[in-house]
Nucleic acid binder design. Structure first.
Lengths: 384, 384
DNA sequence: TCAGTTATTGAGACCGGTCTCAATGCGTAT
DNA sequence: ATACGCATTGAGACCGGTCTCAATAACTGA
């Protein structure tokens, strides 16, 4: 009788426990309805969490029967993997950090498109950040990306003379590839246009057309408002162009080539000032090189406003084949920077590094040929 | 003797196990050297992990003495927080997913800049993806973003007639804001230009100038190569423009307004075909509206190649005030879409939703006024 | 059928942080 | 000195997945 009672009590207790367990399970599932886990799928498929994870994560082995059961349960439950959890476990994220000057600048947005396409093809995704060509902001963005534990970073460094933050990232095991600019001392691959060759080519072309006084216009600002030392320039792309420009100007007999470098052109107001200075220059400047397409567009508009005719009054070349260079009359001659390819190459390098490639650091130079259009003409037609 | 031998064997085995364990521990610490954890900092500061986390995570309370000790240890060790772990715990990431048609299109890159600036100001970062205005790719990108557990998404939907994937995201608790396009049935805020009003304004202006046969050129493709039903258009921005265009054309006495909608202009080749068709149109088409700046640039170039003069032969208006519209001669009249503001507004809406705002869904309409420039002129100067 | 080998599965620890609540410490009043 | 209330701290569970290795199952050959 006593034994029978105890037996009944044990059964009731067992039933109550099963009831509570089921109830808790129901509540849990209800509140977590929006996020099904591997454990949920495993329960539904009547396998262990580890087995379900193997199937859903696509690693290890599982029998076909098990695989089907898990797959079906996952579909039925609407399982969606959690990359955060996966990344925590594996120590690897599928995220790539990108630091550009300004995503709105077509030069960078096209490069980002190239990076993005190559990344997506490799199952990776981009976190895009803007440095605004400001070192402090670049540092902050790199820190943000490091906290996100990006698998690697592609950076257009604002100033190659101060890359401590990039060195720290690299030391932490995060591979870095720079694009458009190269820091020689950094243990990072780089992908850049051949700026020196391009500047040289443009200058030769202009000299062949009889030009001697050629101006170079840049956004970079110099101490005392005038270039006196190339080391002032933290963006290697710009430095290389100007170095080649100076060499070529000397070759053409210019005694003070640095005096032909016009600085600090950021936006249309400063372009107006520079255009006034160029038009007032003695001896007359008969050709202008714009360091990038933003500057190019501002200068072009300012010159047109003053009634300058291309190429009869002034020959004009801009870096980067932006959309606007092809609707002007005449069309603008450009240094064609294939930034989509820059981006693709940079991403390919980075994927190699992420996958453990420890071969020698590469500095990839991509040709950036001049496209001569109607904005360049012989000096004799340039009025004197 | 046998017992002695077994005893020695057991001791050797034990020693070997301890040796291997020590060796593994050393290797492990060495490989983890680059990632200092809260536990490491806690150890160095002689507090518990929970306390160190409180200080480093900036939540809870800690004495000043403790705070200083932890902060100092963290600096000395070079602690860098792990957002993955934090997000796992908190159930919240600081990532925002963005799906645009093509980051390279200035319309989107400027919007993304607006989104990015607003996000960064709120301590958030963007994962940018491209849909290429393809529904399948959009679905895939949304899935990728959901797997990353983004805190919310800003999407320019490719087709508002099929938004199951967005509905699923919203049901999962991930707020969505659409921009440029609106899906009425979606429980999502939207930020768009007032396309109907803009089209109406442009048409009124053209009619006031005497134009009657005005063409609208779009990238959208229609069944049978001709627009017959507005519901064919999955992008609401385009649909609204065309609807207003048709209404205004009818008002101006056009009997078959749909015949003035030219479709499927993607790239410069198709632009050539469309330009030929427009120039051959009877009665003569005296004004053209380009649905976006990519189409606009292609059309402009094709017309110029055929010697068309603006505005004497043809008046021309393009949606979006792209850079190229301001260097043509004459400058192009545009519908100014302030996409930077679109992006900012969208991000603000999304931040509200992420923070728990459950107020009524908002559809924000931003004015997109016409900027009349030299490409528009009276019909009488347009040759007949 | 039994033994040996290979394939599959499950238990439990772990990633690096957050969160909860009980334990401990500190300050104040009697 | 003792009691009470408040502030601070620590222990341990947990987030959702991966990884390791022992246990179990399945297969094959004698």
């Amino acid at each position: 009788m006593r034994i029978l009672f105890l037996n009944i009590l044990i059964r009731v207790n067992h039933f109550a426990k099963e009831f509570v367990k089921r109830d808790i399970g129901t509540v849990k599932m209800s509140s977590k309805k929006t996020s099904i886990t591997v454990a949920d799928v495993a329960r539904a498929a009547k396998v262990s969490k580890a087995t379900a994870a193997r199937v859903l994560g696509g690693y290890g082995v599982a029998s076909e029967k098990t695989r089907n059961a898990v797959t079906e349960a996952a579909e039925k439950l609407g399982y969606r993997s959690n990359e955060l959890a996966r990344s925590m476990s594996t120590g690897r994220t599928g995220l790539i950090g990108v630091v550009v000057g300004d995503i709105e600048n077509a030069f960078f947005s096209r490069a980002v498109r190239g990076i993005s396409d190559a990344a997506n093809a490799a199952g990776l995704n981009l976190i895009i950040t803007n440095s605004n060509e400001d070192l402090e902001q670049e540092r902050e963005m790199v820190a943000v990306l490091m906290r996100q534990r990006v698998a690697g970073m592609i950076v257009a460094p604002t100033d190659v003379r101060d890359t401590v933050h990039l060195e720290a990232a690299i030391s932490s095991g995060t591979p870095v590839v720079t694009f458009d600019r190269v820091a020689d001392h950094l243990v990072a691959d780089s992908v850049c246009g051949d700026d020196a060759a391009a500047a040289d080519q443009v200058m030769r072309h202009l000299h062949d057309l009889g030009h001697q006084n050629v101006a170079y216009v840049t956004a970079a600002g110099f101490q005392g408002g005038r270039l006196s030392d190339l080391d002032e320039i933290g963006i290697t792309a710009v430095r290389n162009r100007i170095a080649a420009f100076l060499t070529a100007s000397e070759r053409a007999g210019i005694e003070d080539p640095m005096g032909l470098v016009f600085q600090n052109v950021i936006g249309e107001e400063s372009a107006q000032d520079i255009v006034a200075a160029i038009l007032a220059h003695e001896p007359a400047i008969t050709a202008v090189l714009a360091s990038d397409s933003l500057i190019g567009a501002s200068l072009y508009k300012a010159f047109k406003e003053r009634g300058v005719r291309f190429p009869s009054d002034l020959s004009f070349v801009s870096w980067f084949d932006a959309d606007w260079t092809k609707v002007t009359a005449p069309q603008i001659s450009v240094v064609d920077q294939p930034t989509y390819e820059f981006g693709q190459k940079a991403m390919q390098c980075l994927i190699g590094r992420i996958n453990g490639d420890s071969s020698k650091i590469e500095h990839i130079l991509i040709p950036t040929p001049m496209i001569a259009r109607g904005s360049i003409g012989p000096r004799e037609t340039c009025g004197d």
